[in-house]
Structure formats: C-alpha cells, structure tokens
Design a protein around this nucleic acid. Structure first.
Lengths: 339, 339
DNA sequence: TTTGGCACTCGCCCTGTTCGAGTGCCAGCG
DNA sequence: CGCTGGCACTCGAACAGGGCGAGTGCCAAA
C-alpha cells in the first residue's frame, strides 16, 4: 500500500505535469509544493511509485510523468470534481437558454462544452428508443406518397418519406392518423414498431390499409435503427493543444472522431449512471490510446436519455473537466425537461 | 507575354510540386518531363517566371514552388477539369443512391466528397429562401402550445415550437392549417413571411386568431434567418496531409471550419454559376491564406439551391479536385430532383 | 526514516563541417 | 537570337562532437 505522502507526491506530479506539459523532477516538486520533505525523500518515493507503475520517465535522467495507471489512481482517489465558478455557471445558463429547438440545444451544448473544457466535445442526441412519442403525423405529399413525422418528448423530430403501393384517400389517411396517434402517443419509442405492427388487425376492411400499415412498421423500424444514435462534435481546433508530439497524435484522433460508429461505441461503453472517465489505453479504440474520455449521461428526468462528454489528451485537468462536463449535462437535462 | 514553352514549364512545376511536395529544380524537371530543352534553358525560363511572380524559391539554392499567382494561371489556362473515371462515377451513384432523407443525402455527400478528393468537404444544405414550400403542418402538442413543421421541395424539414398566448381549439387549428396550406404551398420560401402576414386580414373573427398568426409570422421569419444556411463538413482528418509545416497551418484552418459563419461567407463569395476556385490569399479569411477552396452550386433544376466544395492546401490536384466536385454536385442535384 | 552529498547518466542545444542540389552567369554554337 | 554546356558559387540539410545541466541512484550520517 502506498503511504499518504507517496499519494501526495503522485498528486503533485500529476498537477505539475498537467500544468507544464514537462516531465517533473524531484527538486521542482519540493519547490512548488509544500511537501515538507527534501528532494531526496521525494526521489525515494518516486522510485517506489515508478516501481508500482504509476509514473515513468520518458528517458533516463529526465523527470517523471504519470502513466495511465497513475492518472487512474489520481482520478479515483486523489482528485475530486471541481465545481464551476459562478461566472461559469452563469455563462452556461446564458448560453443555453437561447436555444430554439433541439438541434440548437445540441449545437450550443457542443460549443459550450468545447469552450469550457478547451477540448473536443461530443454530444449525443437524445436516444429515440428511450424517448416517448409526443406526436405522430402523416402528411400526404402526393397521391401515393406520404411523409411520416415523429416527435418525441425530448424534442426530436424525425421524418421519412413513404412511397405507397397505391393512392391513398384523404379520409382513410385521417382515420389512420387518428388511430396511430391514439395508439402510440405517450408510449416509449421502442414499443412503437410492435404497436404499429398490431394495428392492421383492428381493421377488417380493404387491404389498402394493411399494406400501408406494414410499410409504416418497417419504416419505423428502420428509422429507429438508422437514426437511433446521432451525435454532434465540436472544438476540434482544441486538438492543436495536444502538445509537442501532436502531429502524430492528432491524426488517429481526427479519424476516430469522424467515425460516428467509433464515438458511439466509446460513449456506449460508459457507465449508465454517474460520470465515466476512460484513460488512455482503457479506451478500446487504439487511435485514442493517448486520449482520455470523460462522459456522463444526461436526461430530462431521473434517467439518462443520452450521453455527452469530451475527448482530450490523457494529460488533462481532470477535476476541472469533470466539473464542466457534469454541470453542462445537468443543465442540458433541465433545458430538455422544460421544452 | 509568356511563351508557350514557359507556360509548359510552369505547368510542369505545378504538377511536380503537387506530386512531390518538394521544391522542384531545373534538372529534375527536364528529366521527368519531355520538354525537349536542356536544364539551362529551363533555368532561364524559371528566372523569367520568377520575375513575373508565378514561382518563388523558399530560399536561395532550392528549387522553385508555384506562388498563388502561379496556381491561378495554372487553373485558368493550363489545366482542364479532369473527368472522373467510370469506377469513380459508379461509386458516386452507389454511395448516394442509398440515402433515405435529406440529412442522409448531405451526410453521404460530405463523406463521398472527402473520400474522393482526400480533402475537407463542405456541403451546404439547400437554402430555404430558394426552395418552395411543399407542406405546412400545425400540430397541437398541448393546449397552448403548437409545433410548426415546414417541408420544402428539396426535402428540408424545419420545425419550431410556438407558445400561444391562449389555448387554441382543434377546429380553429384545422381551419388555420387549411388556410395556411392553400396560401403557401408551392410558393417560394422567401415570400412566406409576407403571405402569412397578410393572413389575418382575411379573418373578421376573434383576436385569438390574429395573435396566433402574428406569432407565426415572426416565427417564420426567425426560422428563415437562423436556419437559412446550414452546412455539414467532413474529412477533417485529411488536414493531416497538409505537408510538413502542417502543425502551424492546421490550427487556423480548424478554427475557420468550426466557424460556420466563416464557411458560409466563403461559399457565399463563390460565383453563382460555374465552378469557383479561390487560391490562397484570394480567400478573405486570413486563417485560410494557405488553402484553396473549390466550390460549385448544385440544385435540382437549372438554378442552384446551395453550394458545396472542398478546402485543401493550395498545393492540391486542381484538375482532379474540380472534376470530383463537379461530378458530385451534378449527381446530388439529380438525387434532389428525384425525391 | 529522512537527509545532504556526490558521482553519474543522458538528452538538449550549440557549433563546425561536409555534402550536394540548385542557381546564375558566361562563352560558344546553331 | 535563342539554346546549350560548363563552372563557380550559395546555402540549407544532415551529421558529428562537446559542453551543459537537470535529474537520478546510492550511500553514509543524523
């Protein structure tokens, strides 16, 4: 087990390294932090910490830098979540309050998060399957062409064109629309396909209706699949803060960020509740092995409807980042609940 | 005036430099291109070209590289637009045909363009003001809360929440909806606010309606303003191909790309018809002074409803890039016309 | 267990040197 | 008059060597 002071030394190393981006030596440590011991003692502690794998030296006769394992310990036991300052909180409110629709909320959130953390921000749209249906609309664009519009309680609006096998009268359309709405409004999205599937059984009439309803069902399903998970990213310019080795690092990160699949998986791996911090190699994707991901679920009520987070270098200000991420998530939740 | 051979030398320099990323000297030129003259002659030509400002040397005793002016001449007079290969064309079709809605079309276009050109792709959503209204829908989400949904002929669907000053009956709603549609469908989007503004005059009834209609009008207007110009970008990972000096270059470019305003202005400066190539300092934004922007309008019919293009280093393969941009724009136009 | 001292290591940075691609100029040739 | 080959020159890239100093590990003493 590590003594209290050793942990203190680790904390000091992490803080200094995050601040300076340079390997930190024993002397500098004792000067900048009031550890109450001499450099020699710190050196001994460092030797132990290195043996345990919490820190490493890039090359002999250089200072130490934290390893992923070191950051892990730091996050788990040595650092809290730094609450935001009141100006920062106020900035969040001001910035987010002007949003006019969901796209706007998500867009503003991304920009806000990127600005607060000075890192790359990722915000997932509220999941369809976890939302409930607020409204279903069927519009007739042309005789044999419909448009389906779905509105969720989280403000998402999804639409899809439907080519009907045969023309469809306005009255039957109204009928179907009414039945759909009475069936489906207020239900969880995930249940919708099944509900719609059953709909034809309640009719004894023409096959017209049956065909259309099946079209609807398949459409709903594909819609849920394809649009289930959308996300927005921003602040990629912050990648340039990565450090001196950034030309090599930045490439795979940009590539990973472009692959929505990768990002979704990344967020998907995060815990359902509470904040998740994945450090360096803890991330499955190897292009992100020198980045850390801080993510948290957000939602209008008790349960999360989606996640948001930031991606940055492992050498990041964890307490501050976690504080910003949590604060933003909370407030976005409030905004969603209001709308 | 420049002789034919001098132009040929410039063309060779541009081609070689684009290929190798390295300053090109007289010897290498004569070896790689059948100019039919000796290096010494080429040197003389180069001296002239440099005097005229078409090429420059990064430092004494290095080869020459084209200046912005040199690229301009190259694009204007020395290079055509390289048509795509048939496999490439087929790829475009295959890739774009699977799109299910406008978001999907735009998203696929961005990815396609980025992949074809290996550069950063920018695609503007079809402009609202240049589209016509296909459908207007008014949904009642709560007694005093409506949702307005607008659908354009280009497939854009825009929605906006409306908080009514007072509850609004279902029948008055249906009435208003019908009137709205009969007034507005088929009209150009830009005219809609005015049309809606006039709507209250055709009523002699309660002030209920009047208030709601004005709410509608202002909303329509703000909607047009705020959502008029949206765009999607992709392929930012290609920024890493920028060259050896890319750490310095990439920063301002990423920042510019994040600022939608900047990009929109960039595309806005492009000609209305035909392809526009802006080279280096020709771009107003100074962060983009070492990039070139190739853009072109696209649309379902004769006139353009929006623009798309790519952003890359001035040292780019202009004929190939222009070919890809043009081909993609054409096919996206077709897709939009079909939907 | 902590501390001061001390020898040692090794990357960084500065300097000097070499190497060669590329240039400009010039005299000669068609 | 334009093209060509030759030649001296320039100047950056690449490499090597040396001093510097931060930082280390170890040890003996408190």
């Amino acid at each position: 087990m590590l003594s209290e002071r050793r942990l203190e030394v680790l904390r000091a190393i992490v803080q200094d390294y995050v601040g300076t981006e340079e390997p930190v030596g024993s002397k500098a440590l004792t000067e900048r932090h009031k550890l109450g011991v001499s450099p020699a003692t710190v050196r001994n502690d460092m030797a132990v910490l290195e043996e345990e794998g919490f820190i490493a030296q890039p090359h002999t006769s250089a200072g130490r830098i934290p390893t992923d394992k070191g950051y892990r310990l730091f996050v788990d036991r040595l650092a809290g979540v730094k609450p935001l300052s009141t100006p920062e909180r106020r900035a969040i409110h001001n910035f987010l309050d002007g949003a006019v629709d969901l796209d706007d909320v998500v867009g503003r959130t991304v920009r806000l998060l990127a600005q607060l953390t000075r890192q790359v921000a990722v915000v997932q749209y509220p999941s369809l399957t976890r939302s409930t249906v607020r409204h279903v609309e069927l519009l007739s664009l042309a005789p044999a062409r419909l448009m389906l519009v779905l509105i969720t309680d989280t403000g998402r609006v999804e639409q899809r064109l439907i080519d009907c096998p045969a023309p469809f009268g306005e009255t039957s359309l109204a009928d179907l629309r009414a039945r759909l709405n009475s069936r489906v409004v207020g239900r969880r999205f995930a249940d919708v396909p099944q509900l719609v599937q059953d709909l034809p059984e309640s009719f004894e009439e023409t096959e017209d209706r049956a065909t259309v309803t099946t079209v609807l069902a398949t459409l709903l399903e594909s819609l849920v699949e394809e649009h289930e998970e959308r996300l927005m990213i921003g602040g990629t310019a912050n990648l340039t803060r990565f450090g001196h080795d950034f030309p090599l690092m930045i490439r795979p990160v940009l590539e990973a960020l472009e692959e929505q699949v990768v990002l979704l998986k990344l967020l998907g791996e995060a815990k359902e509740s509470g904040m998740t911090v994945r450090i360096g190699h803890e991330n499955a994707h190897e292009g992100l092995s020198s980045t850390s991901v801080v993510s948290v679920g957000y939602g209008s009520g008790g349960e999360a409807v989606a996640k948001l987070g930031v991606v940055g270098p492992t050498r990041m200000d964890y307490p501050g980042t976690m504080g910003a991420v949590r604060a933003v998530a909370r407030y976005v939740g409030q905004i969603l609940a209001e709308s």
